[in-house]
C-alpha cells in the first residue's frame, strides 16, 4: 500500500481502539458489550494489517505476545467466575463490586459503575471478553491474510504448481 495510507491507518487504529473500549465500558447499559467492542478494537489492528501487511505491521503479531494478552482475558473471566462460585455458590454469580468484602471501600466506590441497577461484575466480564475477542479476531484475520498469499497457487482446490 502507499505511504499515505500507511500514515493514516496507524493513527486511525488508535481512534478505533478508543471506540472499541468505549463500547466495552458501556456494554451493560447501552447496546454493545465485550464482543462488539472487541471486534471494533480488532478492526484497528486489521486496518493496519491491510495497510502494512503482516511483516511490517506496527502491531506485534507474535504468538507469544498475543497468547499472553488473550490468556489474560480468559484468566480474568475464570477468576471472576470463581469469585462468584466461592462467594455466591454458583459460577459467575454476580457478587457486585464489593467482591466478598476484599475490595477496599474507596476502590469499591470508585469502581461502582454509575447505573440504576448496579451491574456488579458484568462490566468486568465485558472487559475480559473484549480483550479475548480483540486478539481472537485479529488472529483470525492474520490466518486469512496468510492463506490468501498462497491462494493463487490453487484452482478449484487443486494445486497448479
Amino acid at each position: 500500500m502507499s505511504d499515505l495510507l500507511k500514515l493514516i491507518a496507524y493513527p486511525v487504529s488508535f481512534i478505533m481502539i478508543g471506540y472499541g473500549v468505549m463500547t466495552i465500558l458501556g456494554g451493560h447499559i447501552t447496546p454493545g458489550g465485550g464482543f462488539q467492542g472487541g471486534a471494533m478494537m480488532a478492526s484497528g489492528a486489521i486496518l493496519c494489517i491491510l495497510a502494512y501487511g503482516l511483516k511490517d505491521n506496527p502491531f506485534n503479531l507474535s504468538h507469544e505476545r498475543m497468547s499472553l494478552v488473550e490468556s489474560l482475558g480468559a484468566l480474568l473471566y475464570i477468576c471472576l467466575g470463581l469469585v462468584g462460585l466461592l462467594a455466591g455458590g454458583s459460577f459467575l454469580y454476580n457478587v457486585g463490586t464489593n467482591i466478598y468484602g476484599l475490595v477496599p471501600a474507596g476502590l469499591q466506590s470508585m469502581l461502582n459503575y454509575p447505573d440504576a441497577l448496579h451491574a456488579g461484575i458484568i462490566p468486568y466480564l465485558n472487559i475480559a471478553i473484549g480483550v479475548k475477542v480483540f486478539i481472537g479476531l485479529t488472529t483470525l484475520v492474520i490466518l486469512f491474510y496468510a492463506v490468501t498469499k498462497y491462494a493463487g497457487d490453487y484452482i478449484d482446490n487443486e494445486e497448479i504448481d
Partner: peptide
C-alpha cells in the same frame, strides 16, 4: 487499563 493492554501488542 484496556488501552495499556492494546498498546502492549504494538511495536
Amino acid at each position: 487499563i484496556i488501552g495499556l493492554i492494546a498498546g502492549a501488542i504494538m511495536h
